[in-house]
């Protein structure tokens, strides 16, 4: 199975979304934890070290997922068009922003909205809005 990522992919995206939901459900029900990636990584960087075990296990799972995927399907190649300077700037912004905002696409977007949290709804609107505006500025105003 290979996916044409340049096309509109409602079914594989929906199926992937269901898997993400199942993953969040697993962590919530078995570990009593929120599957928020930025929070899970952030907790690993905090001092003094406390509950690092499950966080490290989750991160290993994330990084190891492509290996598992490749056993059954053709692994697609992510297309990262940003240059190194942009990647470093974007990485810093994402790192600082998700920690101050206490969540990212997974923690606020998936888990928070599933919990019907008004706080996460506000955060999701804020980062989605900022994403839309940034892409508009970079692609349609500055690029032209």
């Amino acid at each position: 199975m290979s996916i044409d990522w340049s096309a509109f992919t409602p079914w594989s995206s929906l199926a992937g979304g269901l898997l993400i939901g199942i993953a969040a459900a697993t962590l919530a029900l078995f570990n009593g934890r929120i599957a928020g990636i930025s929070g899970i990584i952030g907790g690993l960087l905090r001092l003094p070290k406390g509950d690092s075990g499950w966080r490290a296990a989750f991160v290993i799972g994330l990084i190891g997922a492509p290996l598992l995927y490749a056993l059954a399907f053709t692994l697609p190649r992510p297309e990262i068009n940003a240059g190194y300077g942009s990647l470093i700037l974007a990485g810093l912004m994402v790192g600082i922003g998700t920690r101050y905002g206490a969540g990212c696409t997974s923690g606020h977007g998936v888990c928070g909205l599933s919990r019907l949290s008004p706080r996460s709804a506000v955060a999701t609107l804020a980062f989605m809005g900022a994403g839309f505006v940034t892409v508009y500025l970079l692609r349609h105003l500055i690029a032209n």
Partner: peptide, 10 residues
């Protein structure tokens, strides 16, 4: 924080 994250995401 969320605005900063979204801009970096974009």
């Amino acid at each position: 924080g969320s605005l900063l994250f979204g801009a970096g995401w974009g």
